[in-house]
């Protein structure tokens, strides 16, 4: 263990892992409680289009991915808000279209396959100093936003109609939440990978949901699970020489299964209370 820490790439991966673990876990609480898991997956896949554009333009793909994901997230929000298309339908459409766009763009420019693999599935070796700083910056933005808008985000997650009725700008807050998901996806993709990032957003929060009926405790437990999974997963991935994204996600899944086994909610559900867990 000690020797792993001496490698620069490992230090960067672990630092990035701490940020990713915390941010995914915090944003995941809203995603899970609001039933937005599918949006998380949709935006994650859309980031592939952004990455591909970055490759072609010779810009850091994280930069183009941020812009692209924000655009897609807000696009989904705007289409669904007009009420003519259901949100999951909008996601289904955007999801495939942006992925296809990415594949098309990549096909036009050959020679990036190795790099691309890292973006899709995550790699410990992939985190450059620039990527680390980008992740830190995005992470600070996300956590600061959650800190400032804590009660507002709680309110729109609990009951968007009531949030609006009590005088909160519920529509704009929903766009903020979509943006937070987009930023979280992008800051995580180098280590966890586009394909797996939505699992890291959903699973720690889902595990925490099993264990508590208090919102703040749920967030704390989710962060604990997220940090354990990313840091533990990165170390395991180093020792076992396995893909970092897959290792992290399997570790969170293990945490989730343990939480499910220990869950007081589950006991109550058995005794007859329906539960949307």
């Amino acid at each position: 263990m000690a020797e792993a820490i001496h490698y620069g790439f490992m230090q960067r991966a672990l630092l990035a892992g701490l940020i990713i673990g915390a941010v995914c876990a915090v944003v995941g609480v809203y995603v899970v409680l609001r039933g937005m898991s599918f949006i998380g997956a949709g935006i994650a896949h859309a980031s592939f289009g952004g990455v591909a554009i970055g490759f072609v333009l010779g810009v850091n793909p994280m930069v183009t991915a941020v812009l692209f994901c924000l655009l897609v997230a807000w696009g989904i929000g705007a289409v669904a808000r007009r009420g003519e298309v259901r949100e999951d339908t909008a996601i289904g459409v955007f999801f495939a279209a942006t992925m296809a766009l990415g594949i098309l763009v990549i096909g036009l420019t050959r020679g990036y396959q190795v790099d691309l693999y890292a973006y899709l599935f995550g790699s410990i070796l992939a985190v450059s100093p620039a990527d680390l700083w980008m992740s830190v910056a995005l992470g600070v933005v996300v956590l600061a936003t959650v800190g400032v808008l804590f009660k507002e985000l709680l309110s729109i997650t609990f009951d968007p109609e009531m949030a609006e009725v009590t005088g909160l700008p519920a529509g704009r807050l929903h766009y903020v939440l979509l943006a937070l998901i987009a930023l979280t996806v992008v800051l995580s993709m180098k280590v966890v990978g586009i394909v797996l990032v939505s699992a890291l957003i959903v699973t720690p929060a889902a595990a925490a949901y099993q264990l508590t009926e208090d919102f703040r405790k749920m967030m704390a437990l989710s962060v604990a699970a997220g940090l354990f999974a990313t840091v533990g997963g990165l170390l395991l991935s180093y020792w076992l020489n396995t893909g970092s994204g897959a290792t992290i996600v399997l570790l969170t899944t293990a945490v989730f299964l343990v939480a499910l086994a220990l869950s007081p909610r589950r006991r109550r559900r058995r005794s007859g209370t329906p539960d949307a867990g």
Binding site: F158, G167, Y209, D214, F215
Partner: peptide, 14 residues
Amino acid sequence: PVRVRDVVMMGRYG
């Protein structure tokens, strides 16, 4: 997962 007092306070958020 919220408590009664949290929900009641939501009425004052605006």
